[in-house]
Design a protein around this nucleic acid. Structure first.
Lengths: 336, 336
DNA sequence: ATGAAAGCGCTAACAA
DNA sequence: TTGTTAGCGCTTTCAT
């Protein structure tokens, strides 16, 4: 059974296709009777306008792509929700795509905008393909969320990662910890560097020594947290607290520490980063840096909508973080 | 700067638009020299074909929608990955959308297919809008994954929920548990009913009494697990084990049981369902029913591709589950 | 207020 | 092997 087209409706209603189109898009321009009649026929035939044809004609798809580093990280879900809220308020659809940390895949999705499959992108990836600027034509409308991509200057929504990390270290120091380790993000990346800087600043502010051997790098995943914790233990250096750059790594680290016979938080305290949903239910409930993810998602989508509407203001929005104190940090154990 | 069209390329290359089109889509049909020349011009001008126009013309978007019950459930992520794998092998893009258990939203996304914004859907929702069948026109290509939607007869990928639940109860019974509670899914839903049936059958098979007061219902979320555990405690009935219909509810329940002063698993054992990523890192590591989610995702996408290619075979694929034994179940405590 | 007609960018007959 | 041409379904001038 062939889909009903605008032409079928026009024929049935005895009007032109232009009138049908107006009935749907600009009803105020029609006679009351004509309008009612046409809408009646539309309902009767079950006509649904072909959005492909419309967006083709209008050169806009009303769809945007949320491109994330790794879709299996629950961190993104709340951000997606915020984006989706604003999107549906403003008539956009959201496509969530997985970059898998793969440059070719990122290019593919950017090209979807070039090909007019989507109108714009919200990027939550660590970097853009190097050849992006070389490509001819305008750069697709893009907003960066939660990350900062080196060398590009795009509207951005983020937190002050260094301040957040520094704040967390200050809290640990206040609990008497003097040997604090750090499990960072991917070595060399902006996000990882910033949090690490904050960690170092936090140590210095507390007058604590900075030992580079107490920093190990991961990739935000649970298994990376496990490996990192083991690497820290393998150094043989003493430490009583860990600041992890993600809750997932914090959870992996705790799991590994326990396997190795350490109690958390009695022997070793752990602070996470993100406050993902599981943080509160975990045992011990995770003390962690909370990011206002829903709000960040909403703000990112608003920036993108502005961009798409041509109200381009180069803008960086920085959100406040909050240290959520739960049960994964205890006062430093007495030295013996 | 206006986007480059196929006509610009044709003009520059001194060929027809048809030749350019062929150079991109069916290069083997062209002379070697012509092809090279055209591709050269394409590269030089930075031409990217307008996929909207193409899909409009070809009446296919090469995009499918994965519609899930609630995107914040990490259960779906692995399934998404499986779907995405097969999709990119077969040239499709995947759009993940959040139904939020809202019938209107489900309708919106189904209409995206009617409007030819997408070619088909993989549904992971509990039911379809009641008026779906009333709508004129063909029903959009759809595959159901992990759920079973009452009253519809679509290609489906699922597990034997009853058998899986029964198996889990058998394991608990073998550990000496005689009063086993159940935290189910959404009351009245197919998925919840099936797992509950399996739970009842498991009790009967082990010769244990079935007390309806020991079943409470949730919605798969962590907070539902908390509330459900509290509700079970509030009955005042004794029980030494819980079978939860999701890992998230199991985690919430454990968290609540502990707040109430019960040890897990020493006092009360808990079995989850799904084996989400966090299950292993949780303390205690969750004993849970594992679903082969990646494979299920791959199979669902394959079914949809067949459907879209017209190789429609009404098919139900049932996958094997496996009970993953970890640390959240202990032998039943001695009665005193 | 309504209709006629052009055309968005591309592909696929059909011709040459 | 390549070109010509007719649309895909819709919106939008420009007429009437």
């Amino acid at each position: 059974m062939k889909p009903v087209t605008i032409r079928d409706v026009a024929r049935h209603a005895g009007v032109s296709t232009a009138t049908v189109s107006r009935a749907l898009a600009q009803p105020e321009k029609l006679n009351r009777e004509t309008l009612d009649h046409v809408l009646g026929v539309v309902a009767q035939l079950g006509f649904v306008a072909n959005a492909g044809a419309r967006s083709f004609r209008q050169q806009s798809t009303q769809t945007i792509i949320l491109l994330v580093r790794d879709i299996s990280n629950p961190f993104y879900l709340e951000i997606y929700k915020g984006i989706e809220e604003v999107a549906s308020e403003t008539g956009y659809k959201v496509l969530m795509a997985d970059a898998r940390n793969d440059e070719a895949r990122i290019t593919t999705y950017i090209d979807m905008v070039r090909q007019r499959q989507a109108d714009g992108l919200i990027m939550m990836v660590r970097k853009l393909p190097a050849d992006l600027a070389d490509r001819p034509g305008p750069t697709p409308p893009m907003v960066v969320a939660s990350e900062a991509i080196p060398g590009v200057d795009l509207p951005t929504v983020r937190i002050d990662n260094a301040a957040a990390a520094q704040n967390a270290v200050a809290y640990l120091a206040a609990q008497g910890h003097r040997a604090i380790a750090h499990i960072g993000g991917v070595e060399g990346e902006y996000l990882a560097i910033n949090r690490h800087q904050g960690y170092v600043q936090g140590l210095q502010a507390a007058g604590l020594p900075v030992d580079p051997r107490l920093t190990v790098w991961g990739d935000f995943s649970i298994s990376a947290g496990r490996r990192a914790a083991q690497a820290l233990l393998d150094t043989g250096l003493p430490f009583t607290a860990i600041l992890a750059a993600s809750d997932q790594m914090a959870i992996g680290a705790i799991s590994q520490l326990r396997s190795a016979g350490h109690r958390v938080p009695q022997d070793i305290s752990v602070v996470g980063f993100d406050d993902i949903i599981i943080a509160e239910a975990f045992e011990p409930a995770l003390t962690t840096v909370q990011q206002p993810r829903l709000e960040m998602g909403r703000a990112a989508m608003r920036l993108l909508v502005d961009l798409l509407h041509g109200d381009a203001h180069q803008q960086v929005l920085e959100f406040e973080t909050k240290l959520i104190v739960r049960d994964s940090v205890a006062p430093a154990p007495q030295e013996t």
